[in-house]
């Protein structure tokens, strides 16, 4: 049994950091890192909440987190492939240059 309050607080902080990263950063690879932080915040919350009963850690949450790590790795891989293609077209990974699609 571990106290969950510090973990909830750090989850919220990590969510804020991830969202801030998505809003402020211009580098596409850093944006993908922001997504990674968001996913990991949720994973941390899962793991913290799985150990709330004395002497018992729920395997359900652990398996969900394992699966979530895999899925989010796949998403990041697709994102990196797209970044590569963007670099081929625009010769930059700065998202401010990706402005041709509007309205």
């Amino acid at each position: 049994m571990i106290p969950y309050q510090p973990f909830i607080i750090s989850t919220i902080l990590l969510m804020a950091i991830g969202l801030g990263c998505l809003m402020v950063r211009r580098d596409m690879i850093r944006l993908l890192m922001g997504i990674e932080i968001l996913f990991n915040a949720a994973n941390l919350n899962f793991i913290a909440l799985s150990a709330q009963v004395e002497g018992f850690v729920d395997p359900l949450a652990q398996s969900v987190v394992m699966m979530a790590i895999v899925l989010d790795g796949a998403v990041i891989a697709v994102g990196l492939a797209m970044t590569l293609n963007v670099y081929r077209h625009y010769r930059t990974v700065d998202v401010r240059r990706l402005r041709r699609l509007r309205w």
């Binding site: 899962f46 949450a61 989010d72």
Partner: peptide, 22 residues
């Protein structure tokens, strides 16, 4: 890429709501 960024963020929120429900 725009779609991936927004949709993956939504996926993270879905996972967070799952953890709250859990």
């Amino acid at each position: 890429f725009k779609y991936l960024l927004m949709s993956a963020t939504a996926g993270a929120f879905l996972l967070l709501s799952m953890s709250f429900i859990y």
